[in-house]
Design a protein around this nucleic acid. Structure first.
Length: 358
DNA sequence: AAACCGGGGGA
DNA sequence: TCCCCAGGTTT
């Protein structure tokens, strides 16, 4: 079986037309690869266009305010990617004379680029023959070659990389890597792969042995744990107060309202009692305008139960004034917000009580 | 090796 | 509902 020939022939007829394939600008390809980490193509496309329009060069990204970068990234998730991309741009300016390095080995030193992304950029932009092994490649190779090693184990990563390294086209490594990815996205899909019309059907171990659903083998993941957030949308004369999350935690560098996290859900009376000893409310007269039902927000490994309280205070106390950013309520959307908060403000009718008008 | 980090869409 | 997406970093 000439794996590479069959694959490239398939790609010739089925390649997706994607914006980052119509450029040779390594920076654009870099941006696209980071956006596409654990992110579907359809979800990433609009972010790609907005990102390179707002930050058209490595220099412009390096010079950018991190808040502006986060705002463009808002809603895409895995926000460390955005922070690392900007850090990487600075790194390239300081260590590589402003030009992205051209080898996989050097690209691996750039913040936010791991084994897959470095190989992808090296092969797409610079023609280096290194396999770019992503989730699609694990799935395809495990099925066709009948490999049961868990793809998220160390030995599995080595094994699949070695196999891809044997199969890769030495003359067209970039096309080969892109072809594998499209083949996984369009043909050898996770569920309901199109096996009857697959050019590898005659050779595919999983298809021949009716083991499509069993491959690839993945380690088991633990169920998400619950977290309980209480957000205080404090209103005072058309202004509210927000703060950037600085902890090493979810939503790093995004903005949010004053909040309280508890280890368990509060009962209604416990919640009211809590209002009296919040640092950012003490000394203020507080009028409770609305309390939402708990809103469920699911992350990959957490389930957040968020309750939004709309409050009006007679005057902001010193904690609110000193530790938070005072923002006109109508301008809150200029800040990068977690999807949870953004969606609540956009869709929840009770947010009318939060309006700037008195 | 395992945990952590988001959000969305397809089946 | 469950799965998983052009994964990387930290512990």
């Amino acid at each position: 079986m000439d794996f590479s020939s069959i694959l490239l022939k398939w790609y010739q007829a089925n390649a997706r037309d994607l914006p980052w394939r119509n450029t040779t600008n390594p920076y654009y390809i870099w941006v696209s690869e980071v956006i596409l980490q654990q992110t579907r193509v359809v979800q990433g496309i609009s972010y790609y266009y907005r990102f390179i329009e707002r930050f058209p060069t490595i220099q412009s990204l390096a010079d950018a305010d991190i808040d502006d970068v986060m705002k463009v990234w808002q809603g895409l998730g895995y926000y460390t990617r955005a922070r690392n991309l900007k850090a990487g741009a600075i790194q390239v300016l300081e260590q590589y004379d402003g030009r992205l390095p051209t080898t996989c080995k050097e690209l691996l030193k750039i913040k936010g680029l791991g084994a897959y992304s470095a190989a992808a950029i090296a092969s797409f932009a610079f023609g280096e023959a290194v396999p770019a092994v992503d989730g699609n490649v694990y799935r395809i190779l495990s099925r066709i070659f009948g490999i049961f090693t868990p793809i998220d184990s160390i030995s599995g990563k080595k094994e699949f990389f070695a196999l891809a390294n044997e199969l890769i086209s030495r003359s067209e490594p970039g096309r080969f890597n892109q072809a594998l990815i499209d083949f996984g996205a369009l043909q050898c899909t996770p569920k309901s792969p199109r096996c009857p019309e697959c050019p590898f059907a005659d050779y595919c171990y999983a298809f021949q042995n009716n083991l499509i659903a069993a491959l690839p083998v993945k380690g088991k993941k633990k169920p998400p744990t619950d977290r309980f957030f209480y957000y205080f949308m404090v209103k005072h004369q058309g202004y509210s107060y927000i703060k950037r999350r600085e902890q090493k935690d979810i939503w790093h560098s995004l903005y949010e309202f004053p909040m309280l996290e508890t280890s368990a859900a509060l009962k209604p009376d416990e919640l009211i009692a809590m209002l009296n000893n919040l640092s950012f409310l003490s000394g203020s007269k507080v009028k409770v305008l609305n309390i939402s039902q708990p809103i469920r927000h699911v992350l990959s490994h957490r389930t957040i139960w968020a309750t939004f309280l709309i409050l009006e205070v007679d005057k902001p106390n010193y904690v609110l004034a000193e530790e938070y950013v005072r923002v006109p309520i109508d301008n809150i959307n200029n800040y990068s917000l977690p999807r949870l908060i953004d969606a609540y403000m956009a869709a929840e009718p009770a947010v009318k009580y939060f309006s700037a008008k008195k």
